[in-house]
Amino acid sequence: MFGRSAALLVRELTTDDHHLRRFNYDLFDKVISEIQEHFQQVTTIMEKMQGENEDGQISSADENYNGALIHHQSILRNKRCLLAYMYHRANRLQRLRWQLGAVLPEDVKELLHPSEKEFVKSYSEALSSYMTKLDIDLAVDITPPKDPYIQVRVLNNIGEVLLGDQSTSLVRNSIHFVKRSEAETLISQGLLEEFTG
């Protein structure tokens, strides 16, 4: 009641701006059941109102109306909180698509609600098909680089990777001179780091 659990749900979003929390099924379902409870109350009040109208007691109509209004507002409030929760998570997932490329890491995937996975998939497909049509990779850094090539240091053993037109073996701590546009996704995925030194 009072939309307390809905507020808790929204508060979860504020604790951490970049990290995604596991989808909170318990709280989410609790809010939905609260909405149903409020709805039940509105229906009983409405029924009572109708009954009283037939009896000719019009004096308490306003009082009933006030009660129904309170429950109605509670439903709206809970709905707003639920929608905001989904909306902000979806926003974060969109941002991830731009940072990490089409494939989400496994440990992020398991935090998501099935519908969110569906969303990520369709969003990613829409974006990729748009980029293929334009024939431009829109996800690269928007500031033009001073040099098309950069030096990168490998942070983890990756193995053979096709960079440009030749395959390169990326061994841990080796330093490579690669095209910036190709290195960018790997850097944001945490596999390489830019080598300055």
Partner: peptide
């Protein structure tokens, strides 16, 4: 969808009812 606005509206204020409200 503004989170800050939603949380702000959760602050309580003390109120006096001017009319009766049934079922609440």
């Amino acid at each position: 969808y503004d989170i800050q606005d939603i949380l702000m509206q959760d602050e309580t204020v003390s109120t006096v009812f001017l009319h009766k409200a049934n079922g609440a």
